[in-house]
Each structure stands twice: as structure tokens, then as C-alpha cells.
Nucleic acid binder design. Structure first.
Lengths: 154, 154
DNA sequence: CTGAGTGCAAAAGATTTGCAGGCAC
DNA sequence: GTGCCTGCAAATCTTTTGCACTCAG
């Protein structure tokens, strides 16, 4: 663990791990460093590759196990695609407080959006059923109105 | 096919099949009869069991293949759960034109809701990105505010 | 008739699990 | 030291595919 680059987010992760009675292992912190260092939306396979490219070896099983914990504690946001695949993004609340996603079908780009009145409407719907919203998914897909897609693919 | 109970929805299904260059086989119509006869939200496994209980034998492979076609043509609505599992419900437009879902975490009951202003907001968000909404998912989960869940589980 | 459709079983993917060895505390 | 954690490989689970036989048109 002494080789890890100090990271201001380790404190938060370590608290989450402790709260679950889990140890702050090298692998868990390395996974968090990787995930928190990018705003990309990635699937398990891509995250694993990105780790390997940095010569960080973490097994697939450990990655699955660790990501579950992070999602449970909202360190990560899990995006469920219509295909049943999952993408993950870190959830630094200070940067993008709360948002949903819209995917461009043409270029695959994922944009984030947030609208306050949608939350109000959702709350009202739940209230009418005597429910308190605990989880929400709101995802859109769209096709580009131009002949050729105008979103720059980097 | 002569043993099939006549069903007013067969016309629509046969049109969809024809439009895809597919034949109106016994299996495809039986699957549609089963799906259109209930308002339940079911996964593949449950649908298969429900068919078997009615002594209708359709292979899992055929069910998957057929459901894909129905979803593509909006005869069925596919609900993607957070776990990555899928549920299907028939899409009789004349009954519930367009709706989303909210699941009670306590009893598993799925309620439908629809709010017109959400559509408007979605449209605006897409417009701003030069996108036309082609697909949308909006699902909520909630916990019951009562001590014990007040939704009757049938 | 004849090619599209079906059932079966095998394959493919994604995720989970059991277990022996390793490491955080 | 001790028991939690990891990596590996095997097991699971869901969905897809190849192929020989069947049937709708």
C-alpha cells in the first residue's frame, strides 16, 4: 500500500470500506483510483483493460466484488443499458450533483442532463402510491437530426 | 394453426410478421396469445413456464427469437431492471397509451405512471443536443412509507 | 415442393463462487 | 498470528447459434 499515489478521495473510500467491515486493500484502492480519475462511462471489461494498461493487476472477480460495494455506497453510479450491459461512472457529488443520461445512437456519445421539475413530478407520483423514491433510472436514446452526426467523436 | 383460438389481435401480429418477411407460425401466434392475454410483467423464464402450464410447447430459443421481433415492432414493451434482467409486457396501445414504471421494493408490485410534462422536458433536452428521442427508459423504485407495505400482494 | 422456422444441444458471454495461498491489521 | 481478501478456475445463468428435421405458403 505504500506505493500508492496519495489521493484525497481515499479518505472517503476507506470510510465506506470500514462501514462495511472491509479492509482497505491495495486492489480496492487501486480500483477506486482508476475509476475516480476519469469521467468516462465504462463497462467492467474496459475498466479491467484500462487497469492492465497501467500495469495494475486486479482480477476480474475482485473488480466485480469491489465495484458492487462502491455502487452500493454511491461512490459509483451504475448505468443499465437497454441491452442489459452495465456502465459505471464515479459519483463525485461535488462535480455533477445528480444527473441522467442521453445517448446519441449515431456516435455513441453519452450526454448528461438534469432537470429539477422531473424530480418533483417523480416525487408526486411516488407520494400518490405511498412510496418514497429510493432508486431511479431515466435514460434516453436519440438519433442525430443532421445527415451526419454532429457530435465530435474524440 | 386450425386449433388456435381466434384472437382479434392476430391480425395486427400477422401484419407485423409479414412486414418482417416472417411466417405466421403456430408458435409465434401462441406466444402472442399468451403475452397479450395478461397484463403481467414477466421475464422469459416465467413466460416459458406459463406456456408449459398450458401445455403449449415452445422452445426457449423460439421464445427469445419471437419476443425480439415483437419488441422491435412495439407489440411488446421491454422493461430493463437494474439487475440487468428483462421483463416484458404487451403493448395494447388502446389500453395504456404510454407509461413508465415504479416498483415497490417491499412487495415487488409494479405500478404504471405517465406524465405529459416529462415528455416535454425530455424533448427539450434532446432538442438542445440536436437529437430526436428514439428510445426512453424511466423507472423508479420506492420503499413503502408504512411500517408494513400497504400494497396488496395478490 | 421448398425454404423459412423450430427444437435441441452446444456455444458464448457475463457474473458468481469455492478454495488454497497471501496479506492487512 | 488470524481471518479477511485475492486470484484462479470452475460453476452458473442467460442468451445465442448451428444444424437436421418440419411445416407454412
Amino acid at each position: 500500500m505504500e506505493n500508492l499515489i496519495p489521493c484525497r478521495f481515499h479518505v472517503e473510500v476507506e470510510e465506506v470500506l470500514k462501514s462495511e467491515g472491509l479492509r482497505a486493500t491495495k486492489q480496492r484502492l487501486e480500483i477506486w483510483d482508476e475509476l475516480s480519475s476519469s469521467d468516462k462511462h465504462r463497462d467492467i471489461e474496459t475498466i479491467l483493460l484500462d487497469l492492465q494498461n497501467k500495469k495494475i493487476n486486479v482480477s476480474r472477480a475482485t473488480l466485480y466484488r469491489t465495484i458492487d460495494v462502491f455502487v452500493k455506497h454511491s461512490l459509483l453510479k451504475k448505468i443499465t443499458l437497454d441491452s442489459g450491459k452495465f456502465l459505471y461512472e464515479h459519483n463525485k457529488k461535488t462535480i455533477t450533483p445528480k444527473h441522467d443520461h442521453i445517448v446519441c445512437e449515431d456516435c455513441g456519445e453519452i450526454f448528461e442532463f438534469y432537470d429539477n421539475s422531473i424530480s418533483s413530478i417523480e416525487k408526486k407520483i411516488a407520494d400518490d402510491l405511498n412510496l418514497k423514491v429510493t432508486k431511479r433510472v431515466h435514460q434516453l436514446s436519440g438519433s442525430c437530426k443532421d445527415d451526419k452526426c454532429s457530435h465530435a467523436k474524440n
